[in-house]
Design a binder for these strands. Sequence first.
RNA 1: GCCGAAGUGGCGGAACUGGUAGACGCGCUGGAUUCAAAAUCCAGUUCCCGCAAGGGAGUAGGGGUUCGAUUCCCCUCUUCGGUACCA
Length: 999
Amino acid sequence: MVSGEWFSFTIHHLPFTILHSPFAIKKEMDYKPREIEKKWKQWWNENQVYKVSNKSDKPKFYVLDMFPYPSGSGLHVGHPLGYIASDIYSRYKRMSGFNVLHPMGYDAFGLPAEQYAIQTGVHPAKSTAENIDRYRAQLDNLGFSFDWSREVQTCDPQYYKWTQWIFLQLFNHWYNNESDKATPIEDLVGIFETKGNEQVNAANSQDGIFTADEWNAMDAKSKSDVLMNYRLAYRKTTFVWWCEELGTVLANDEVKDGVSDRGGFPVERKPMLQWSLRITAYAERLLNDLQEVDFSDAMKKMQGNWIGRSEGAQLFFNLSPALPKGEGDGTSLPPLEGAGERLEVFTTRPDTIFGATFMVLAPEHDLVKEITTPDQQKEINEYLSFVNTRSERDRISETKEVSGAFTGAYAINSFNGAKIPIWIAEYVLKDYGTGAIMAVPADDERDRRFAEKFDIEIIEIIDKSMHPGASIEDKKGKMINSDFMNGMEVLDAIEAILQKTEEMGIGKRQVNFRLRDAIYSRQRYWGEPFPIVYDESGIAHALPIEELPLELPKSEDFKPASGNESPLARVKDWVNLPNGWKRETDTMPGFAGSSWYFLRYMDADNDQEFASQEALNYWQDVDLYVGGTEHAVGHLMYSRFWHKFLYDKGLVPKKEPYKKLLNQGMIQGVIESMYLLKKKINGDSKFVCAKLAKQMGITDYVQIPVLIDYVVNYGSPESYLNTAAVKKFMEWRPEYADAIFECSKGTFHKGVFTPKGDATESHLFTFSEVGKMSKSKFNVINPDDVVEQYGADTFRMYEMFLGPIEQAKPWDTKGIDGVSKFLRKLWSMFFDANGHFTVSDETPTKGEMKTLHTCIKKIKEDIERFSFNTCVSGFMICVNELRSQNCNKRAVLEPLVKLIAPFAPHLAEDLWHSLGHDSTVCLADFPVLDESFLVEDSIPYPISINGTKRDLIEFPANATKDELKKMALELESVQKWIDGKTIRKVIVVPKRIINIVVV
RNA sequence: GCCGAAGUGGCGGAACUGGUAGACGCGCUGGAUUCAAAAUCCAGUUCCCGCAAGGGAGUAGGGGUUCGAUUCCCCUCUUCGGUACCA
């Protein structure tokens, strides 16, 4: 550019440019990302650009990332995907006039650090701190705009003080179903003292009813036991998932497919005394309030299914003792007392009662012992021991095969006096409903299988002939063989029987949830200690707030203890208090700290409260929460539950913690593996080429994952190892130093390649598949390496460019060159070949302004709908167009720099300062769209004949429909197609298309 | 099995409310520059027929609604995610 142009600008227009004549700035001509990134990161840091205040005139906006668990392997390229998206959004909002809270922290308690400690002896506190340092360095490398002054670590006593405090609040409350909110436990004591528990409508696990007198007569321990059954955090013996390998109990969502989610170890059902949280009290609200939040339908569905609400009825059946063979009415049943006298089942289809030809109890059901007749005792015992040997995996894998045993006892159908035999079977679960069902083989698939196997009568009760193809769930058909319901439609019959059973006092409407209370105890060291002490009689007492945080003792002995004991039990001087009381030795689970961390960021240093009311009222809730779907039923449910509890207490202003949830897809890795023959050849291992292995049976070989760095063309079907790679592989895995490597080109053995034909080197095909990026698959790509080569801005934009944020996709470094090239092009628009700053203050052309404003419109719209991949292509189009226009005008380039600042902040900051600014681009105003630049004089109209495009013609933008129609029909290209035909119709869609229909 | 999401060139993907299918990028092909390479720049690139002009087909497959369908409806197939004796 000619430098003379620089002095023609008007000074009031852009006053600062005078300070920077083109001669004053001498830049390196090339874009050097690593240099400028280092420089501006430091500058941002020194100037505390990202620090955010709780006081502002601007509207608030809270952008939250799911904080990471700092694992030993560090971040891989998949982790930052969500962080980049949220960072772009935060920066965009900040520039658009919002006071943006965008914090980061660490979910630092958990099993892996402890497993690592057991293997290596390194204390979890130490390894966790080291991992956090590493994560921080990796995160810093990517230029995120986090306000680190608000960092939280869940293992920090100043943080978990409040985790413990919230736990104690849960401990000190019960759930009142009448007012539908959590209520202080003192209130409940007051009710018990005056009225007993009969009138209390609470979420509870209490069996039986007591009067005020009975309550008042109880000793302290009994009272404490009763109250425990009402608390929101309670201790009870329940069947829990026990993982022997991990030495701890696990929650429902930590068990998948019958094995532990972490580590994949077997789990078993076991009755244990454990702390639990009564999340079931909130089931209905957790379900209903999903309507208010902006989560994906898939996410809502997942949570809805997990909660699993079903409407039905609770029905009671009188029991009948089985008559001993060949005798009169002598009974072998002991008299039952209290509620146990009747069998209680849950069913969604009370209308089918006349088809109930047997009852099934869960094997663990309390009644089993009491009702089993002597004749059947042996059979029942055998079945119970069979059930005991079955792992959860067995039960899951054999869902088609039914098994069971007859107790010898009967239930009575109150409507017709029919005697219904009572069985026990694995397929009925102790946990769900009442742990007992009435089985209707005519109308239930499992019940039918069972009846067929054990030759039990099947009574058809619904005539579905009018509804061919309708499933059982459709609830269609006419009742038959059903006494007073005969002829009714199913839905009417359900209503009729519900009324009747309620009148007769043998049943009532009931809603059931699949959701279980959350087991909250872990027999581990590396977690929050419970702020609970037990007195001599075993009554649990809350620690007073002054004693919080109850710090985790600095034990070096964190190995799992024998039996069900927790490692903390061995720290005797910590457990045993001077007054003879004992501390709880279990620790809290991983989800404890993560259930409320987003609130702590609002006021992270507060040592008086978990966060001040002022801060909570300012920030309110999370506007945008970005994270993976894997937390759908765990973390998200727990934190919504805790938040609702705090809301009941008036401690947080909103019912729901997260307004909008964005789920980023997983970035997967490519797993490359080699085929190792199971059979050794003369004592040596042998690997064969993937193409050879395909011809063999799957049982002949095992797949050995190989470090992807060695593989040529990794990720493609043509991936292979050449001779050099095979050598590297042998160095890496010395146990295979003497192995034979056979491929179609020849055989490699002990450093010698024996070719088949004239091949010169080995060409050992490997097998490629897309899968999880993980240390054990040797396919981890460290973002640091990519950043080192291309720079953080390129990395950020490339990750966004890969595809829609919500979609899973495999990492592929090919293609990053395109983004890198784009940023260099953008850079080069500001400098000439000699590195002179060449931005001019000339007035831009209409075309240049149109290009700019088209881009502004696109970027703004696309950021707002989280379509970051199309933003990147929008920038590319803009830069390509401006370059073809040879644009170097400040009035275009300066807004462009601001536009791209959320995506490539380092580059933008550098150019921004080159443009003469002293303040940061991060807080500059985001460019505003001026539609007037987008107005067109003419519009290209596709002309189609019968829906097929035949021409593309520019017509004046202000032409009327009739004019357009006339002009279109006159076109030569149109005449050709309509010649000799009849025009049926001409459709003119202004600004879109003209379609001519001919016959 | 049930629930949910998706299926578009050689590849990643675009087309937001039914209106030019394949934007943008990678890769590939040709050319310029260079002693040469890298880098850069220019041109081309859905498939089929054709030198071309042009024509035909085409968004997993089949059917439908419509002047017009990647988009809406029905059926089938495939892939991914969730969940699973839930009564």
